[in-house]
């Protein structure tokens, strides 16, 4: 386990690689998604997984938490879930004649917010605000959340009855959206033939401690991005804004997220500088959930984003 207080970049690099290897033992046949999720964690962002039930969203979240030694809580969002159920509540203690704060499930390193869109907007925004600020205010008192703090939200694209889909402005708080999709035949066969995921999950070993994760996040912020690539990021963002087929373009926060994620991606590739490839690799995951196509267009957002990638010249 990687637990030195100040390990070298090469060490950190190795740690990340073995973490990814460990996760791929459990999540079979989804290397890109696994990497994007890790990238998201390393960038200090949060991750939205939108997919059908049963494709392994929970398993992915669980595995990541375990591998990175994160304390893990799961919150199942329902229509009657209240903000206090997430954040915590003060309860009167008759013995000491005081109110004692009982922290909610959000006081942890990794939260799986399952089926976000089932809860009421009030409850949703309680979570989203906590994600953004890394702190919550309950009864006038500000309490800081743990560091690292990583939220994996899931949405069910089908079965929309009685749900409150997150508006685009709220989705912006998630750094990436990852689609897991069905496993391919070979992976599915492995899944069927092998041990149960639950048992396997028990065997997963943590590869680093919390301090190392924080170190990693800090080291990644120092990855060099040249001016030429800042130009590239800007022209990508501008392309989404100038494209009439989108209702609106990407926000500055999206641009910052793109840079952060590209840095992490470069680090995961073993480099200390960002290349155009890193930006291209994370661009789709970062932009798709933040953009909305006009309805008269037949193409979906993913295709439009691909088009932008194909039409924007690399400086």
């Amino acid at each position: 386990m990687l637990d030195q207080t100040n390990p070298s970049p090469a060490h950190l690099q190795q740690g990340v690689q073995s973490a990814i290897g460990e996760i791929e033992q459990i999540i079979v046949g989804k290397p890109q998604q696994v990497r994007l999720a890790v990238c998201c964690l390393l960038s200090g962002g949060h991750c939205l997984i939108e997919d059908l039930p049963g494709v392994g969203k929970t398993t992915l979240a669980h595995t990541i938490a375990k591998v990175f030694n994160l304390e893990f809580n799961r919150i199942q969002f329902t229509s009657d879930l209240l903000p206090a159920d997430i954040l915590g509540v003060s309860i009167f203690d008759p013995q000491s004649q005081t109110f004692n704060f009982h922290p909610g499930p959000i006081f942890t390193n990794c939260v799986l917010a399952d089926e976000l869109n089932r809860a009421t907007p009030k409850t949703q925004s309680a979570l989203l605000e906590a994600m953004e600020e890394h702190q919550i205010t309950v009864e006038g008192q500000t309490r800081y959340l743990d560091d690292p703090f990583f939220v994996i939200g899931t949405q069910n694209p089908l079965d929309q009855a009685g749900t409150f889909p997150l508006p685009e402005s709220q989705l912006d708080r998630f750094m990436m959206k990852i689609n897991l999709g069905y496993p391919d035949a070979k992976a599915e066969r492995l899944l069927l033939a092998g041990e149960s995921r639950k048992d396997l999950l028990q065997q997963v070993k943590a590869v680093m401690d919390l301090d190392t994760v924080i170190n990693l996040q800090q080291a990644i912020q120092k990855i060099h991005v040249s001016d030429a690539l800042l130009d590239y990021v800007q022209s990508l963002i501008t392309a989404t804004r100038d494209n009439s087929r989108f209702v609106f373009g990407l926000s500055p926060r999206a641009a910052l997220s793109l840079l952060k994620a590209a840095r992490s991606w470069a680090f995961m590739q073993g480099r200390d500088f960002v290349e155009p490839a890193d930006i291209k690799a994370v661009f789709t995951a970062i932009s798709c959930h933040r953009l909305m196509a006009h309805e008269q267009h037949s193409k979906n957002v993913e295709d439009l984003v691909e088009e932008i990638l194909h039409s924007t010249a690399i400086p």
Binding site: A277, K280, S311, A313
Partner: peptide
């Protein structure tokens, strides 16, 4: 090379 293509692509 397409303009949008990075070299390794």
């Amino acid at each position: 090379r397409k303009p949008s293509e990075y070299l390794h692509e």
